[in-house]
Design a protein around this nucleic acid. Structure first.
Lengths: 218, 218
DNA sequence: GCTCTCAGTTGAACGCGTTCAAAATTCAGC
DNA sequence: GCTGAATTTTGAACGCGTTCAACTGAGAGC
C-alpha cells in the first residue's frame, strides 16, 4: 500500500543541483535543435559531466520529456495563479489559462512532434494516462479545479467535480492541434481557443442553469 | 508534375523476390517477438542475406510497417470481396468488413503499440494522413466505397461520396480501441463493432431517408 | 583522525539502426 | 559468348541510447 515514488536519485543537495543542471542543459539544446538531434552525449558534454552521470538522474532520454512536462506545469501554475486573481468570470479564467499554456509551450514547438509521438505510445511512461504521469496529471487537473472556482458562476457540485478532468482532456486536444498548427505564431491555435472556450463557457452555464441533472449520459 | 513514386528498388524479378522474402521474414519475427525486439540484423540473418541488403529494399525499419499496412490491406480486400457478395444489407456488409479487419490484425496485436506510436508522429511517413500513406489510404477507402454499394439501401449521392472517408476514420477509431483492448481475444473490440455498426447503420438510413440535406454542419 | 557506507561519477563497452564504398551479379545489345 | 552498365549484395564502420563495474569523495559514528 505504501505508494512511494521511486522517481530516482537526488538524495543530496549536490544531487539536486546536478539533476537540475542536466535538465536545463537538455531543454536548452532541445529548443535549439529539437529532440532527435539532441544527443545524450551533447547534453552531458555541455553540462560538463559524464554520459553515465546523465543516466544516473534520468533513466532514459524519454524521462527528460517527463521532467519537461513537470517543469512546464510548474511554470504554468506560477504564471496562472496571479493572473487568475484578476479574472472573475469562468470564461475569462479559462481563456487565461489556456492561452498561457500555449504561450509557455511555443518555444518548444519544434520538438513537440516527438512529445506527441511518445505520448501516444500505450506502454510509454510518457503516455499521459499512465501511472507514471499521474502526479503531473493530478496537478494539472488541480489548476483546472481552481479555474472553475470562480465567485461569479454557479456550477452544481456534480458538474464541478467532473469539469477538471473534462478540461484537462480539452487541453490535450488543444495541444494536439497546436502541434500540427503550422500557422505563423500559431495564430490558429489561439483562435481555436477563443472559439472553443466561448462554446465551453456557454455549455457549462447551460448545463448548470437547468434541471438537466441527468446529463450523466455523456 | 510527373508524380512518380520513388518507393524504392525492385526493378527485377529477383529483386521482387528478395523484397518479398525480407518482408515475410520480418513479419514472422514481428509476430513472435514484437517490433522493438526484432532487429534488422535478425531479419537479414533469418532471411539469409546481408544487413545492407535489407536496407536496399526498405529505407528504414519503419518502412517495414508501411509494407505491412499494404499487405494487410491486400489480404483484407481479398477476404472481403467474396464475403461481400453474400451480404445485401449495408449493416451486414459493414459488419463483415470490420470484423475481418480485426481478424486479420489479431496475430499482430503485440506489436500494434508501435504501429500506433509511429503512426501518431506527425512527420512520420507512417502517419496515416501523410502523402506516403496516400495509396493505402486510397485503396482502403475504395473498399468502403464497395461496402456502401449495396442494392438494398438508397443512399443519396452526396452522402455516398462522403461515407468512404467517414468509415475509414471510423475504422481507425476501432483499430485504436483494439490496440488498447486487453480483453481475451479482443472480445470487447468485436462487441464495440457490433454496437457501433448498428448505430452507424441507423444513422445512415436516417440521414438518407429524409429531407435533411443540410447536414453539412458536421 | 579513521573507517565504513553510500550517493555520485566515470568511461569503456554493447547492441542496434543506418550508411556507404566497393564487390558481385544480372542482363541487354552486339 | 563478350562487354559495359545497371542492379543487387556485401561487410565494415559510424553514431547514438543504454548499461555497468569500478572509482571518488563526503559525511556519520566511533
Amino acid at each position: 500500500m505504501a505508494g512511494m515514488r521511486k522517481k530516482k536519485a537526488a538524495k543530496t543537495q549536490k544531487g539536486d543541483q546536478t539533476k537540475a543542471l542536466i535538465l536545463e542543459t537538455a531543454l536548452e539544446i532541445f529548443r535549439e535543435r529539437g529532440y532527435e538531434e539532441t544527443t545524450m552525449r551533447a547534453i552531458a558534454e555541455k553540462a560538463g559531466l559524464s554520459l553515465g552521470n546523465a543516466y544516473y538522474y534520468f533513466h532514459s532520454k524519454e524521462y527528460l520529456i517527463q521532467a519537461f512536462y513537470q517543469r512546464l506545469h510548474d511554470e504554468h501554475l506560477a504564471a496562472a495563479l496571479p493572473a487568475l486573481e484578476k479574472k472573475e468570470s469562468l470564461k475569462a479564467r479559462l481563456l487565461t489559462v489556456m492561452r498561457l499554456r500555449i504561450d509557455l509551450m511555443n518555444p518548444y514547438h519544434q520538438f513537440a512532434g516527438v512529445l506527441f509521438k511518445t505520448a501516444a505510445h500505450p506502454e510509454s511512461p510518457l503516455n499521459p494516462f499512465s501511472d507514471e504521469s499521474d502526479p503531473v496529471r493530478q496537478q494539472s487537473m488541480e489548476l483546472f479545479a481552481k479555474v472553475v472556482e470562480t465567485t461569479k458562476a454557479r456550477i452544481p457540485k456534480d458538474l464541478k467535480a467532473e469539469l477538471p478532468y473534462l478540461l484537462w482532456v480539452y487541453q490535450m486536444g488543444i495541444v494536439l492541434f497546436w502541434i500540427h498548427d503550422p500557422s505563423p505564431q500559431h495564430r490558429r491555435t489561439y483562435r481555436l481557443i477563443d472559439h472553443t472556450v466561448d462554446l465551453l463557457d456557454k455549455l457549462i452555464h447551460l448545463a448548470s442553469n437547468s434541471f438537466m441533472r441527468p446529463l450523466r449520459k455523456q
